[in-house]
Amino acid sequence: MNDQAYDQELDCKGMNCPLPILKTKKQIDTMGSGEVLKMIATDPGSINDMTSWTKRTGNELLSHSQDGGDYVFFIKKT
C-alpha cells in the first residue's frame, strides 16, 4: 500500500517509548542527507513522538500510515 521509495529500513516492532526514537536517531545519523528511512513501530505513542522528533531535529516526516497494528513512517534526512 506504500510505494514510497526508501534507502534504509528500521524495524522497531515490539519496542516501547523511547526506544523507537532512540533507534531512529541512531539510524538517521548513519545516513546521508536526502536519504529516506522507513521505520515500522507498534507503539501507538510513536505517531505523536515521531512527529515531535522530526519537528525538533529538522528531519522531514514524509508520511505515516497504519497497517494493522503496525505504524509505518517515512523520514527524510535533511
Partner: peptide, 11 residues
C-alpha cells in the same frame, strides 16, 4: 534516563 536519552536524540 528516558528524558535524557530522548532529549539527546532530539539534539
Amino acid at each position: 534516563f528516558i528524558l535524557a536519552s530522548t532529549a539527546a536524540a532530539m539534539d
